[in-house]
């Protein structure tokens, strides 16, 4: 049936052509562009805050770790919303893929504690929540009463952010910018790796 494909192509051409039907369709879909950053922001903020509170209050430590994972994803989305694309991906790879897995391994390897056996004494949740709430009120008051010199700009007033990956690479390898701290962090990470491996090594008898 050699004529089917051209016929289909004609149909699609008619549907997608900027004709009256297209204009009608477009008028039915509301233009969300001005409120899109707000929608995304409140979605991510809700995710981050709810899961951070869950991480703070979950009775089981594994549930707290899962709350932390959701909070990491919320913060990663906020980085992306703020134009730091590289940092958003690094957040997912390093925090979710690395640190969180490490924490879950920690929970796994220390499972036979009193807490797991239901012998844990009640935690100081109320005083801690009170201290955290008081701190939060202080911080909110400080934030809302401060002038940060940003001229009251909103997301819509900011210019389109450029991709940061190439610029970050150049900044890290430029001797006049961040080459020295970059190399120091490399040595620091190596030292931490060796130190961690040394600390958890299996001891032979008599040592």
């Amino acid at each position: 049936m050699p004529t089917v494909l051209p016929a289909l192509a004609d149909v699609f051409a008619d549907v997608f052509a900027a004709g009256p039907s297209h204009a009608l369709l477009a008028s039915m879909i509301p233009d969300l562009t001005p409120i899109l950053p707000g929608l995304i922001f409140y979605g991510l903020a809700g995710l981050a805050i709810v899961s951070a509170v869950a991480a703070a209050t979950a009775p089981k430590i594994v549930h707290a770790a899962f709350g932390l994972m959701a909070a990491f994803f919320g913060v990663a989305g906020m980085y992306a919303l703020l134009g730091s694309d590289f940092l958003a991906l690094t957040q997912v790879v390093v925090y979710v893929g690395g640190i969180l897995v490490l924490l879950v391994f920690g929970v796994l390897l220390t499972g036979r504690t009193k807490a797991a056996l239901g012998l844990e004494r009640p935690t100081h949740v109320m005083p801690a929540a009170f201290a955290g709430g008081a701190l939060l009120f202080g911080l909110l008051g400080a934030i809302l009463s401060s002038d940060f010199g940003d001229g009251g700009r909103t997301m819509a007033d900011l210019p389109e952010p450029p991709s940061t990956t190439a610029a970050l690479g150049r900044a890290f390898l430029d001797p006049n910018q961040y080459l020295l701290p970059f190399e120091l962090v490399s040595v620091f990470l190596l030292a931490a790796l060796i130190g961690a491996a040394f600390l958890v090594r299996r001891r032979r008898d008599g040592q």
């Binding site: 950053p37 929608l39 805050i49 703020l82 201290a131 939060l136 911080l139 934030i143 819509a156």
Partner: peptide, 22 residues
């Protein structure tokens, strides 16, 4: 939804910080 500014992000940061302290 159209007036997301610096303070909005700082408030989220403050809530995360206080959840961490708690």
């Amino acid at each position: 939804l159209q007036t997301i500014g610096l303070a909005h992000f700082l408030v989220v940061g403050a809530v995360l910080f206080c959840a961490g302290i708690t």
